[in-house]
Protein backbone atom coordinates (compact mmCIF):
# COMPACT_ATOMS: atom_id res chain seq x y z
CA UNK A 1 0.00 0.00 0.00
CA UNK A 2 2.20 2.83 -1.20
CA UNK A 3 1.38 6.19 -2.67
CA UNK A 4 1.95 6.35 -6.38
CA UNK A 5 4.29 9.27 -6.84
CA UNK A 6 2.71 12.00 -8.91
CA UNK A 7 5.73 11.85 -11.22
CA UNK A 8 4.75 8.42 -12.38
CA UNK A 9 1.72 9.89 -14.12
CA UNK A 10 3.90 12.24 -16.09
CA UNK A 11 6.00 9.49 -17.58
CA UNK A 12 3.31 8.69 -20.07
CA UNK A 13 3.06 12.34 -21.13
CA UNK A 14 6.68 12.96 -21.74
CA UNK A 15 9.00 10.24 -22.92
CA UNK A 16 11.97 12.42 -21.97
CA UNK A 17 11.33 11.88 -18.29
CA UNK A 18 11.27 8.10 -18.56
CA UNK A 19 14.61 7.72 -16.82
CA UNK A 20 14.61 10.05 -13.81
CA UNK A 21 18.40 10.06 -13.40
CA UNK A 22 19.13 11.26 -16.91
CA UNK A 23 16.13 13.53 -17.35
CA UNK A 24 17.52 16.48 -15.40
CA UNK A 25 20.75 16.49 -17.36
CA UNK A 26 18.95 16.02 -20.63
CA UNK A 27 16.57 18.87 -19.95
CA UNK A 28 19.51 21.13 -19.07
CA UNK A 29 21.36 19.96 -22.13
CA UNK A 30 18.43 21.00 -24.33
CA UNK A 31 18.27 24.37 -22.60
CA UNK A 32 22.00 24.98 -23.09
CA UNK A 33 21.86 23.93 -26.75
CA UNK A 34 18.86 26.21 -27.36
CA UNK A 35 20.56 29.14 -25.68
CA UNK A 36 23.79 28.64 -27.60
CA UNK A 37 21.99 28.47 -30.94
CA UNK A 38 20.02 31.67 -30.23
CA UNK A 39 23.15 33.56 -29.14
CA UNK A 40 25.05 32.34 -32.19
CA UNK A 41 22.21 33.50 -34.43
CA UNK A 42 22.15 36.97 -32.80
CA UNK A 43 25.94 37.33 -33.21
CA UNK A 44 25.70 36.29 -36.85
CA UNK A 45 22.85 38.74 -37.42
CA UNK A 46 24.69 41.62 -35.74
CA UNK A 47 27.92 40.86 -37.67
CA UNK A 48 26.12 40.70 -40.98
CA UNK A 49 25.13 44.33 -40.49
CA UNK A 50 28.40 45.43 -38.88
CA UNK A 51 30.65 43.90 -41.55
CA UNK A 52 28.44 44.91 -44.43
CA UNK A 53 27.37 41.37 -45.50
CA UNK A 54 23.80 42.56 -45.68
CA UNK A 55 22.11 45.93 -45.87
CA UNK A 56 20.66 46.76 -42.42
CA UNK A 57 17.99 48.80 -44.17
CA UNK A 58 16.42 45.43 -45.05
CA UNK A 59 17.68 43.11 -42.34
CA UNK A 60 18.08 45.49 -39.39
CA UNK A 61 20.19 44.12 -36.55
CA UNK A 62 19.74 43.24 -32.87
CA UNK A 63 21.41 46.44 -31.63
CA UNK A 64 19.32 48.61 -33.97
CA UNK A 65 16.11 46.87 -32.82
CA UNK A 66 17.01 47.39 -29.16
CA UNK A 67 17.79 51.04 -29.83
CA UNK A 68 14.54 51.56 -31.76
CA UNK A 69 12.55 49.78 -29.06
CA UNK A 70 14.18 51.84 -26.32
CA UNK A 71 13.41 55.05 -28.16
CA UNK A 72 9.77 54.12 -28.79
CA UNK A 73 9.20 53.32 -25.14
CA UNK A 74 11.28 56.27 -23.87
CA UNK A 75 9.54 58.92 -25.95
CA UNK A 76 6.22 57.23 -25.29
CA UNK A 77 5.25 56.98 -28.96
CA UNK A 78 4.43 53.27 -28.67
CA UNK A 79 1.98 53.49 -25.75
CA UNK A 80 -1.07 54.68 -27.71
CA UNK A 81 -0.57 51.83 -30.21
CA UNK A 82 -0.15 49.28 -27.42
CA UNK A 83 -3.24 50.60 -25.65
CA UNK A 84 -5.38 50.40 -28.80
CA UNK A 85 -4.24 46.83 -29.57
CA UNK A 86 -4.72 45.75 -25.97
CA UNK A 87 -8.24 47.15 -25.94
CA UNK A 88 -9.11 45.30 -29.17
CA UNK A 89 -7.65 42.09 -27.79
CA UNK A 90 -9.42 42.24 -24.44
CA UNK A 91 -12.79 43.05 -25.99
CA UNK A 92 -12.53 40.61 -28.92
CA UNK A 93 -11.11 37.71 -26.94
CA UNK A 94 -13.37 38.39 -23.96
CA UNK A 95 -16.45 38.41 -26.17
CA UNK A 96 -15.31 35.14 -27.78
CA UNK A 97 -14.97 33.51 -24.36
CA UNK A 98 -18.34 34.83 -23.18
CA UNK A 99 -20.05 33.48 -26.32
CA UNK A 100 -17.89 30.43 -27.13
CA UNK A 101 -17.80 28.70 -23.75
CA UNK A 102 -21.54 28.69 -22.96
CA UNK A 103 -22.50 27.93 -26.56
CA UNK A 104 -19.94 25.12 -26.70
CA UNK A 105 -21.31 23.64 -23.49
CA UNK A 106 -24.90 23.86 -24.75
CA UNK A 107 -24.01 22.35 -28.12
CA UNK A 108 -22.12 19.54 -26.42
CA UNK A 109 -25.01 18.83 -24.06
CA UNK A 110 -28.01 19.16 -26.37
CA UNK A 111 -27.52 17.08 -29.50
CA UNK A 112 -30.48 18.81 -31.23
CA UNK A 113 -28.92 22.24 -30.79
CA UNK A 114 -25.70 20.75 -32.10
CA UNK A 115 -27.48 19.40 -35.17
CA UNK A 116 -28.96 22.84 -35.90
CA UNK A 117 -25.77 24.88 -35.45
CA UNK A 118 -23.13 22.37 -36.52
CA UNK A 119 -23.20 23.19 -40.29
CA UNK A 120 -22.56 26.88 -39.57
CA UNK A 121 -19.86 26.22 -37.01
CA UNK A 122 -18.13 23.75 -39.31
CA UNK A 123 -18.28 26.02 -42.35
CA UNK A 124 -17.02 29.08 -40.47
CA UNK A 125 -14.36 27.11 -38.60
CA UNK A 126 -13.00 25.81 -41.90
CA UNK A 127 -13.01 29.24 -43.59
CA UNK A 128 -9.88 31.34 -43.02
CA UNK A 129 -11.42 34.17 -41.01
CA UNK A 130 -9.11 36.64 -42.80
CA UNK A 131 -11.20 36.02 -45.91
CA UNK A 132 -14.07 37.71 -44.09
CA UNK A 133 -12.12 40.95 -43.65
CA UNK A 134 -13.60 42.77 -46.67
CA UNK A 135 -17.11 41.94 -45.41
CA UNK A 136 -16.24 43.14 -41.93
CA UNK A 137 -14.94 46.44 -43.33
CA UNK A 138 -18.20 46.86 -45.25
CA UNK A 139 -20.27 46.20 -42.12
CA UNK A 140 -18.18 47.81 -39.38
CA UNK A 141 -15.89 50.30 -41.14
CA UNK A 142 -12.30 50.50 -39.94
CA UNK A 143 -12.80 51.55 -36.34
CA UNK A 144 -12.59 49.56 -33.11
CA UNK A 145 -15.74 47.48 -33.79
CA UNK A 146 -14.22 46.00 -36.97
CA UNK A 147 -11.13 44.84 -35.04
CA UNK A 148 -13.28 43.37 -32.29
CA UNK A 149 -15.32 41.57 -34.95
CA UNK A 150 -12.32 39.96 -36.67
CA UNK A 151 -10.67 39.00 -33.36
CA UNK A 152 -13.97 37.57 -32.11
CA UNK A 153 -14.50 35.55 -35.28
CA UNK A 154 -10.91 34.30 -35.22
CA UNK A 155 -11.14 33.21 -31.60
CA UNK A 156 -14.66 32.03 -30.94
CA UNK A 157 -14.54 28.81 -33.00
CA UNK A 158 -11.52 27.11 -31.48
CA UNK A 159 -12.93 27.90 -28.03
CA UNK A 160 -16.43 26.72 -28.96
CA UNK A 161 -15.38 23.52 -30.73
CA UNK A 162 -12.99 22.42 -27.98
CA UNK A 163 -15.48 23.13 -25.20
CA UNK A 164 -18.13 21.21 -27.11
CA UNK A 165 -15.80 18.23 -27.58
CA UNK A 166 -15.05 18.27 -23.86
CA UNK A 167 -18.72 18.08 -22.92
CA UNK A 168 -19.47 15.41 -25.53
CA UNK A 169 -16.69 13.05 -24.54
CA UNK A 170 -17.59 12.58 -20.88
CA UNK A 171 -16.73 9.09 -19.71
CA UNK A 172 -19.80 6.89 -19.48
CA UNK A 173 -18.62 5.52 -16.14
CA UNK A 174 -18.89 8.96 -14.56
CA UNK A 175 -22.44 9.35 -15.82
CA UNK A 176 -23.29 5.93 -14.40
CA UNK A 177 -21.84 6.86 -11.01
CA UNK A 178 -23.78 10.11 -10.92
CA UNK A 179 -27.02 8.36 -11.91
CA UNK A 180 -26.41 5.67 -9.31
CA UNK A 181 -26.21 8.37 -6.64
CA UNK A 182 -29.54 9.68 -7.90
CA UNK A 183 -28.27 12.73 -9.81
CA UNK A 184 -30.89 14.73 -11.71
CA UNK A 185 -30.12 16.00 -15.23
CA UNK A 186 -29.11 19.36 -13.80
CA UNK A 187 -26.88 17.81 -11.17
CA UNK A 188 -25.30 15.53 -13.76
CA UNK A 189 -24.50 18.60 -15.81
CA UNK A 190 -23.04 20.63 -12.95
CA UNK A 191 -21.13 17.85 -11.19
CA UNK A 192 -19.90 15.78 -14.14
CA UNK A 193 -20.22 17.50 -17.53
CA UNK A 194 -18.80 20.88 -16.49
CA UNK A 195 -15.77 19.79 -14.48
CA UNK A 196 -14.78 17.02 -16.88
CA UNK A 197 -14.71 19.45 -19.81
CA UNK A 198 -12.34 21.92 -18.13
CA UNK A 199 -9.14 20.52 -19.73
CA UNK A 200 -10.62 20.77 -23.24
CA UNK A 201 -11.93 24.24 -22.46
CA UNK A 202 -8.43 25.38 -21.49
CA UNK A 203 -7.00 23.92 -24.71
CA UNK A 204 -9.62 25.94 -26.60
CA UNK A 205 -8.66 29.13 -24.76
CA UNK A 206 -4.98 28.56 -25.60
CA UNK A 207 -5.64 27.88 -29.29
CA UNK A 208 -7.95 30.90 -29.40
CA UNK A 209 -5.13 33.07 -28.11
CA UNK A 210 -2.96 32.53 -31.18
CA UNK A 211 -5.90 33.23 -33.46
CA UNK A 212 -6.67 36.43 -31.55
CA UNK A 213 -3.15 37.78 -32.12
CA UNK A 214 -3.42 37.03 -35.84
CA UNK A 215 -6.75 38.87 -35.79
CA UNK A 216 -5.16 41.96 -34.23
CA UNK A 217 -2.35 42.21 -36.76
CA UNK A 218 -4.44 41.44 -39.80
CA UNK A 219 -7.26 43.70 -38.69
CA UNK A 220 -4.96 46.63 -38.10
CA UNK A 221 -2.98 46.14 -41.30
CA UNK A 222 -6.18 46.10 -43.33
CA UNK A 223 -7.23 49.50 -42.22
CA UNK A 224 -6.68 51.33 -38.96
CA UNK A 225 -5.42 54.56 -37.45
CA UNK A 226 -3.57 53.12 -34.45
CA UNK A 227 -2.36 49.87 -32.93
CA UNK A 228 0.72 47.65 -33.09
CA UNK A 229 -0.26 46.19 -36.45
CA UNK A 230 -0.89 49.70 -37.82
CA UNK A 231 2.45 50.90 -36.44
CA UNK A 232 4.21 47.98 -38.20
CA UNK A 233 2.34 48.66 -41.42
CA UNK A 234 3.34 52.35 -41.54
CA UNK A 235 6.90 51.62 -40.42
CA UNK A 236 7.18 48.99 -43.12
CA UNK A 237 5.85 51.33 -45.80
CA UNK A 238 8.60 53.83 -44.91
CA UNK A 239 11.41 51.26 -44.68
CA UNK A 240 11.81 51.58 -40.90
CA UNK A 241 12.74 47.91 -40.60
CA UNK A 242 13.91 48.34 -36.98
CA UNK A 243 10.45 49.49 -35.91
CA UNK A 244 8.75 46.62 -37.77
CA UNK A 245 11.02 44.23 -35.89
CA UNK A 246 10.09 45.83 -32.56
CA UNK A 247 6.43 45.23 -33.38
CA UNK A 248 7.08 41.61 -34.30
CA UNK A 249 8.97 41.04 -31.06
CA UNK A 250 6.21 42.62 -28.95
CA UNK A 251 3.54 40.44 -30.57
CA UNK A 252 5.68 37.31 -30.28
CA UNK A 253 6.48 38.04 -26.63
CA UNK A 254 2.83 38.65 -25.72
CA UNK A 255 1.80 35.46 -27.55
CA UNK A 256 4.44 33.34 -25.88
CA UNK A 257 3.78 34.85 -22.45
CA UNK A 258 0.02 34.34 -22.52
CA UNK A 259 0.35 30.85 -24.04
CA UNK A 260 2.78 29.95 -21.28
CA UNK A 261 0.35 31.11 -18.59
CA UNK A 262 -2.48 29.06 -20.10
CA UNK A 263 -0.21 26.05 -20.55
CA UNK A 264 0.68 26.17 -16.87
CA UNK A 265 -3.00 26.23 -15.92
CA UNK A 266 -3.62 23.37 -18.37
CA UNK A 267 -0.84 21.28 -16.88
CA UNK A 268 -2.47 21.65 -13.48
CA UNK A 269 -5.60 20.00 -14.85
CA UNK A 270 -3.79 17.67 -17.23
CA UNK A 271 -3.25 14.89 -14.69
CA UNK A 272 -6.94 14.13 -14.59
CA UNK A 273 -7.64 14.20 -18.29
CA UNK A 274 -9.53 10.94 -19.00
CA UNK A 275 -6.88 9.65 -21.43
CA UNK A 276 -4.15 10.14 -18.86
CA UNK A 277 -5.54 7.54 -16.48
CA UNK A 278 -3.13 4.82 -15.42
Amino acid sequence: MTVTPADENLIGDDADTAAPTTSRWRRNENLVLGLVSVIAFLIFWESSAAFGWANPLFTSSPSRIVAAGYEMFADGSIWPDLAVSAEEFVLGYGLAVIVGVPLGILMGWYSRLNAVLDPFVNALYATPRIALMPLIIIWFGIDLSAKIAIIFLSTVFPILVNTMTGVRTIERDFIKVARSFGASDGQLFLTVALPSSVPNLLTGLRLGLGHALIGIVVGEMYGASAGIGFMMQTAGATFQTDKVMVGIIIIAAVGMGLTHVLKMIERKYDVWRPDHHG
Binding site: G182, P195, P274
Partner: peptide, 27 residues
Amino acid sequence: RAMVFQQDSLFPWRTVLRNVMYGLELQ
Protein backbone atom coordinates in the same frame (compact mmCIF):
# COMPACT_ATOMS: atom_id res chain seq x y z
CA ARG B 1 -28.75 1.46 -2.21
CA ALA B 2 -25.22 2.38 -3.26
CA MET B 3 -22.93 0.94 -5.88
CA VAL B 4 -19.17 0.40 -5.59
CA PHE B 5 -17.80 0.61 -9.11
CA GLN B 6 -14.42 -0.32 -10.51
CA GLN B 7 -11.47 1.84 -9.60
CA ASP B 8 -11.54 4.26 -12.51
CA SER B 9 -14.96 5.59 -11.60
CA LEU B 10 -13.64 8.07 -9.03
CA PHE B 11 -13.99 11.67 -10.18
CA PRO B 12 -10.40 12.69 -10.97
CA TRP B 13 -11.14 16.38 -10.40
CA ARG B 14 -12.29 15.82 -6.83
CA THR B 15 -10.08 15.14 -3.83
CA VAL B 16 -10.60 11.95 -1.80
CA LEU B 17 -12.80 13.84 0.66
CA ARG B 18 -14.87 15.51 -2.05
CA ASN B 19 -15.32 12.19 -3.86
CA VAL B 20 -16.69 10.68 -0.66
CA MET B 21 -18.96 13.72 -0.21
CA TYR B 22 -20.45 13.33 -3.70
CA GLY B 23 -23.60 11.41 -2.79
CA LEU B 24 -24.24 13.68 0.18
CA GLU B 25 -23.88 16.78 -1.98
CA LEU B 26 -26.52 15.50 -4.38
CA GLN B 27 -28.95 14.74 -1.56
